[in-house]
Design a protein around this nucleic acid. Structure first.
Lengths: 336, 336
DNA sequence: GGTATTGTGTAGAACGTTCTCCATTGTTAG
DNA sequence: CTAACAATGGAGAACGTTCTACACAATACC
């Protein structure tokens, strides 16, 4: 019950001091003697006092950071969360997640809700909205955006270096002797730019060019079905590719199914690589070569930037996290 | 900026009424004329007023519900969230998720944090703590517990009927002609009881007994490796089972790998079934027969119970959600 | 025509903090 | 010895709501 809650006044009474003094001790503010510190701390422990966040919010901080999730099914979202909470574990901050859904409207509603609850700062994961809207939010509260390339005027950003990730895959495949390497990407109906799949496709093109090879991009969708359809089309060609690089693991799984059905053995007849290194990629039965984003580092970095910005920093920062290639059983030299 | 925030006083000034009147309109309280309603609503729209949740919290509701997640990697947790938010989509309530981690200590800290932020009610997903602790929390704030069988004195509960789910699998396998059906469960070092895997194992035993068959339970762990090891042991026996029912899909994937390595074809030589119906179970390349919990319904039910309890109800309710069997390619008649 | 009753609006005290002064010490400098 | 100053503690006004109590008017009842 709220009525039974221990308040700062209870502590003050117990310790025989003013509420202002207790507040100072709680906040670690300047102007507290060692004796006062001891008295108050003891009273707090005895009563089991915990500051009431809502009351705090009316004047100062809430020590609450919000993470807006665009898609709870995103396979590496748990890693990001772990990175964030891990980084914040020994601080006073608490993390709350807001399921924003995939629609711009619901995401905006969630962000408003978080601001209304006076969170001290926001981490937005792959938010779908215009840069202008983002900037407007960022002027109202400290913001770190994760997973959007490009414009970071009023806010900080953490991105995976998708160009590099795509390059790692191409380099790996070329190193194995492949020359006909196709890429399956996601078809987006306009809207936001700087989205990961676009950047991955661009990275793929750049890397192919660097090796003097012709690129071959097919846009379907980042679903198992999308990977399947894309692969079926690619494998039906006369000079079918010897390797397919899917821009997402889930699509790569579809590619594997298409290979199965076409009677092609992996990796002898066809090498397959994905992106994201989702959990099941490591299952021995799948063993998919993939690019790992290290959500841990991404989350931890986002948390660090946000706290920095809340507490001091004013100019904005963009941090790029380098992915790593995890080579597994689905890639190998092409059969000659 | 907080300083730039539109407050109830701004609205009152604009509409030429008192703040109390505006408050009534906002809350939809009794005692407001149509004219007042219109004036205030217009002022709210013009100014873009949104109530400040923290200020509200000091007196009344925050219209915030907290969902404590024990494990963000839990495969059907996104479904539960969707169920919860879907149910609450057209109400005033907002849902925030609290990553509690798997340790009792971190979970307790998260729950405290949610209470400190004066959430109106809490949904706890598979909380790891004693019934006494749970009861203590439930007296402080309305609580709905998801995924724990048994004791529901001070709080409401939503559970999957795991006994029924296990029965569905056994019935299905027996119907196909299997008689030697083994079950792989999770080995827990004491602690909480009424956990899903225990109940599933019990449901399996009951069902086998009902069919007059001997049960055969092996406890490893609910991991890919656990499923693999368990299956290897089971398949090495003289009278090896013709079907293995793993208590979780992730373990079933390990069983499939063991079958591969033993050169057994599925389902001809070995039928495999899992539980949870995780996303990849439906991939054609896996096509795992599994029990689906319908996280949607579980989440929606939890949300409904919580709101009911916040707004009126006092006696506690336990709701059991019936699972369904999804038959796919990994189960079939045993080879004679 | 007086008394209930109902409907509508407002005043103002909470709610639990933070934080800006201000008061009181004790210490140091001259 | 006094003025200046640092260190410490406290008073009390915010912060933006809700909600109880009350005022007033209009209507209904006898």
């Amino acid at each position: 019950m709220t009525s039974g809650r221990v308040t700062i006044a209870d502590v003050a009474r117990r310790a025989g001091v003013s509420t202002a003094a207790v507040s100072k001790v709680v906040r670690g503010a300047y102007g507290v003697s060692a004796e006062m510190q001891a008295k108050v701390t003891q009273a707090i422990d005895e009563l089991g006092y915990r500051p009431h966040a809502a009351a705090r919010a009316l004047r100062g901080r809430t020590y609450t950071l919000g993470v807006m999730l665009s898609d709870t099914r995103n396979p590496f979202f748990p890693d990001i969360i772990e990175g964030v909470t891990g980084r914040l574990g020994d601080t006073e901050y608490q993390v709350l997640l807001g399921p924003g859904g995939i629609e711009p409207k619901t995401q905006a509603r969630m962000i408003d809700a978080m601001i209304d609850r006076s969170m001290d700062g926001l981490i937005l994961i792959s938010p779908v909205m215009t840069d202008a809207e983002l900037a407007a939010i960022a002027t109202a509260t400290p913001v770190v955006v994760v997973g959007r390339h490009g414009g970071a005027a009023a806010y900080d950003a953490v991105v995976d270096d998708d160009v590099m990730g795509a390059g790692l895959v191409v380099d790996h495949l070329v190193g194995l002797g492949h020359t006909r390497i196709a890429h399956i990407t996601h078809l987006e109906r306009a809207r936001a730019q700087g989205l990961p799949h676009t950047v991955r496709a661009e990275g793929y093109r750049q890397a192919m060019r660097a090796h003097g090879l012709a690129d071959d991009v097919l846009a379907t969708s980042f679903t198992e079905e999308g990977g399947f359809e894309g692969a079926r089309e690619l494998l039906a060609r006369d000079d079918r590719p010897t390797a397919i690089f899917a821009g997402a693991d889930i699509a790569a799984l579809g590619v594997l199914r298409a290979a199965d059905e076409a009677g092609l053995s992996v990796p002898e007849d066809l090498s397959v690589a994905g992106y994201d290194n989702i959990g099941i990629a490591s299952l021995k039965r799948i063993s998919l070569t993939s690019v790992d984003q290290d959500g841990h580092v991404i989350g931890a970095t986002a948390a660090r930037l946000l706290v920095e910005r809340i507490e001091e920093r004013t100019r904005s920062v963009t941090s790029s996290v380098s992915p790593t290639l995890i080579v597994r059983g689905t890639t190998g030299p092409p059969r000659l």
